[in-house]
Nucleic acid binder design. Sequence first.
DNA 1: AAAATATATCAATATATCTTTATATATGTA
DNA 2: TACATATATAAAGATATATTGATATATTTT
Lengths: 122, 122
Amino acid sequence: MKKTAQIFQALSDETRLRVMKLLQERELCVCELIQVLEMSQPRISRHLSVLKNAGLVNDRREGKWVYYSLKKGAENDDVKPILETISLVANDDSVVRNDNKNLKKAVRLSEIEGCCSSRKRG
Amino acid sequence: MKKTAQIFQALSDETRLRVMKLLQERELCVCELIQVLEMSQPRISRHLSVLKNAGLVNDRREGKWVYYSLKKGAENDDVKPILETISLVANDDSVVRNDNKNLKKAVRLSEIEGCCSSRKRG
DNA sequence: AAAATATATCAATATATCTTTATATATGTA
DNA sequence: TACATATATAAAGATATATTGATATATTTT
């Protein structure tokens, strides 16, 4: 009950919904999210920690970077319909569309010259 | 996007989740919710207005009473997976179980002697 | 019309949440 | 070891949300 409320609470913020939509595309590190969403680092980190505490995302460190991804699997089956709902958030939503455009750009840049100073992507 | 955040926001409160769970059982008037949840009238009314503004519930007046029910239908298909999720909120959750018990008692009373002073149920 | 009941809304206060600025920690590199 | 980069966390102020107590509105009953 409390847990469910917490999950909804985590998703009740537009920034965090945008993060969830982006993570549906691919795993992303914090610095990529900063680029795509054009927000300050502490702000992004804080939102990510809310999502993490709600059990909606996973994080793993790889060198200097921390990668976030949607949490999937058995332990999280009750979250599936919620993720479906987020999927339904219109992809024709202008904000989401723009985020996806920025994401492609960020990934392209990171492949050419590395984003966030000098990272190369696997 | 904003709309979706609003829906999640509406569901991010334990009291409102309890209301949604109860409305999954049956349409209920405010005074019944007051009895079942054992909360003040303004408090319940306020929460109901949040759910209504998010498009999650419908209200209809019948005499002195205002009945609330889950909003269903085409206009609300994007809410379906959310309602599924609420269904998943364990029925073995002690709070939910107790609410359902109170609901049965309230309905029984209302059939015998009318709840909220002297209402008789259809 | 007056009284009673059911519900909604408002004003005030308490509490939680978000954002920013500053600082801490972790990792890699010179 | 010192420095730079990536991320996390904390303190402070701004904003939003929840609760309570008082009052307003709608409807029925007398």
